[in-house]
């Protein structure tokens, strides 16, 4: 699997927020096997050095960084944040979030497409956090995105795949664009289900960070993602309405009266 020409071993991308401690964050990243972690930019207070120690930890883990524009509500904020991230992390990758609604953290897809166009033209490699809407996805690809990241459900909601039909349609519509389920998953079976639909990868944060044991949960998600991907490649059978005996009926002993 590759994003913008970069080959990755793991199909799990992991967020770095909300862990009980930096130590558990580090262990969870290692247990997940993730090659890519998401990271944000926040105000650094003068006397504190919180950002600096966090950055040392991430660097020590040897993972690739996907900076985000979390919390941005306008195209201008997102574009400025992307520029700051590119300089800071020396990467053209940007997880583009332009949020519209505070309750659902639903993306402002109009602002998203506009910001994606501006950033793609400026040489960024954009990973847009979007909905499963086909027309929006088409506009994002038109704008230069070569990865799409539809939500499974609202960020941090742990609801799983809210619209399996829409996600299937998106997969069918974009067979050659890497598709990543970003947000809303709660348990490994959600991730396996996404992979069984043929999604290329899964981006997680809260489901791991807020589990009782984040390190074990990271490993559980990694296994589920691998299993789901393997199942997709093995071409699952289609569901049907009626039973079909799995044991052959021919050669059955006649034991009735």
């Amino acid at each position: 699997m590759s994003f913008y020409g970069v080959e990755l071993k793991s199909r799990l991308l992991l967020g770095t927020a909300r862990y009980p401690s930096p130590k558990i964050l580090g262990e969870a990243i290692q247990a997940s096997g993730a090659d890519v972690v998401t990271i944000s930019l926040r105000r650094e207070a003068g006397p504190e050095r919180a950002g600096q120690s966090f950055w040392s930890l991430v660097r020590s883990l040897g993972v690739r960084v996907l900076p985000n524009t979390a919390g941005c509500h306008t195209v201008r904020e997102a574009v400025t944040t992307a520029h700051m991230a590119r300089e800071m992390f020396e990467t053209p990758w940007i997880k583009l979030e332009v949020i519209r609604d505070e309750d659902t953290l639903q993306p402002d897809v109009f602002g998203l497409v506009e910001a994606a166009r501006v950033l793609s033209e400026e040489g960024f490699e954009v990973f847009p956090y979007t909905t499963e809407d086909l027309a929006v996805a088409d506009r994002l690809v038109e704008a230069g995105c070569r990865v799409l990241m539809p939500w499974g459900a609202p960020i941090g909601s742990a609801r799983g795949l809210n619209n399996v039909y829409g996600l299937k349609a998106l997969r069918a519509h974009f067979p050659d664009i890497p598709l990543v389920i970003d947000a809303g998953l709660g348990v490994p079976s959600h991730a396996a289900a996404a992979m069984e639909l043929g999604y290329d990868a899964v981006l997680l944060n809260t489901a791991v960070a807020e589990a009782g044991d984040p390190v074990t949960m990271a490993k559980a998600f990694a296994l589920a993602i691998e299993a789901g991907h393997m199942a997709f490649k093995a071409r699952p059978m289609e569901p049907r309405d009626m039973a079909a005996p799995s044991t052959p009926t021919i050669g059955r002993a006649a034991l009735g009266d």
Binding site: T16, A17, L41, G51
Partner: peptide
């Protein structure tokens, strides 16, 4: 002036 640093994010 805004001064930002790397921070935990999802």
């Amino acid at each position: 002036v805004e001064v930002v640093a790397p921070m935990q994010g999802g």
